[in-house]
């Protein structure tokens, strides 16, 4: 399936089905990251139960330096 991830069109390999899989795929499982799925903020305890679909819009957000 193809999703839009942080504004970029990305074809996901088979086996990446949930938000949790997606985080693992990018080695982000231990990082401070906030995931927005189709403009809805997701909770950490939903990661394994939130399945991705073709055309989904996913944003992965974190904190950077700022004033």
């Amino acid at each position: 399936m193809t999703i839009k991830l942080n504004g970029r069109s990305v074809k996901l390999p088979t086996g990446v089905n949930t938000v949790k899989d997606l985080l693992d795929h990018y080695n982000l499982e231990n990082r401070i990251v906030i995931v927005e799925l189709n403009k809805q903020i997701t909770e950490k305890n939903q990661y394994t139960s939130l399945f991705l679909s073709d055309g989904d819009m996913v944003e992965m957000i974190h904190f950077v330096g700022g004033g």
Binding site: L5, L28, F63, V64
Partner: peptide, 30 residues
């Protein structure tokens, strides 16, 4: 204070300052 931004997931992982802080000592003001 911190800013909230997209992660740079398509490039090699950069160190993140926040992740290097002992957050028990600081209050975050995004």
């Amino acid at each position: 204070t911190f800013a909230v931004r997209r992660m740079n997931i398509f490039e090699e992982s950069q160190p993140n300052f926040l992740e290097q802080l002992d957050l028990t000592n600081y209050k975050l003001l995004p």
